[in-house]
Deep mutational scan, measured.
Amino acid sequence: KRPMNAFMVWARIHRPALAKANPAANNAEISVQLGLEWNKLSEEQKKPYYDEAQKIKEKHREEFPGW
């Protein structure tokens, strides 16, 4: 399985609240909304998620060399 990128790290945190706020929305609609919200963030706001994604990527590389 591929390691999460910065957007996926961010979305994992924000998806539950968005789903709760929009109970009639299906998963595809929630994903679209998450994408729109992510694109509104500044690079500075995204930086912690890029940092976390890098850590996940490095850990994945250690656990699965050659993947």
Results as ranks from 00 to 15, higher is better:
25 A>E: 04
61 R>E: 08
5 N>H: 07
42 S>L: 01
38 W>R: 01
15 R>F: 08
45 Q>I: 02
17 A>K: 14
31 S>C: 12
51 D>T: 09
13 I>E: 13
49 Y>M: 00
16 P>K: 09
60 H>N: 15
1 K>W: 02
16 P>Q: 09
23 P>S: 04
20 K>V: 06
56 I>D: 02
5 N>G: 08
65 P>R: 12
17 A>H: 08
28 A>H: 06
21 A>T: 03
52 E>T: 06
66 G>L: 08
3 P>K: 15
59 K>H: 12
63 E>C: 06
26 N>E: 07
43 E>R: 07
3 P>W: 06
41 L>I: 05
27 N>G: 11
15 R>H: 02
18 L>R: 03
16 P>N: 09
63 E>A: 07
25 A>C: 11
12 R>E: 14
57 K>R: 13
33 Q>K: 14
19 A>P: 01
58 E>V: 10
26 N>W: 03
13 I>V: 10
31 S>E: 15
67 W>T: 14
14 H>K: 10
10 W>M: 01
36 L>V: 14
30 I>M: 07
22 N>E: 03
25 A>K: 13
61 R>L: 11
58 E>T: 15
51 D>Y: 04
15 R>Q: 13
34 L>E: 02
23 P>F: 00
14 H>M: 06
11 A>D: 11
39 N>K: 13
36 L>R: 14
13 I>K: 11
30 I>K: 01
64 F>L: 15
30 I>R: 01
38 W>S: 00
64 F>I: 09
45 Q>W: 01
56 I>E: 09
56 I>Q: 09
35 G>A: 13
42 S>D: 07
47 K>M: 13
5 N>K: 04
33 Q>T: 11
1 K>T: 11
67 W>M: 14
6 A>R: 00
52 E>P: 00
19 A>Y: 06
25 A>N: 05
57 K>N: 15
49 Y>D: 00
25 A>L: 15
21 A>G: 04
25 A>Y: 08
51 D>K: 10
13 I>R: 09
10 W>N: 01
7 F>S: 02
28 A>Q: 12
8 M>H: 13
22 N>D: 03
36 L>Q: 14
14 H>A: 09
59 K>I: 12
2 R>M: 12
32 V>A: 15
11 A>C: 09
45 Q>G: 05
43 E>D: 11
36 L>M: 12
39 N>Q: 12
58 E>G: 12
23 P>E: 05
36 L>G: 04
5 N>M: 04
21 A>Q: 12
46 K>H: 01
67 W>Q: 15
27 N>S: 14
64 F>C: 09
36 L>I: 09
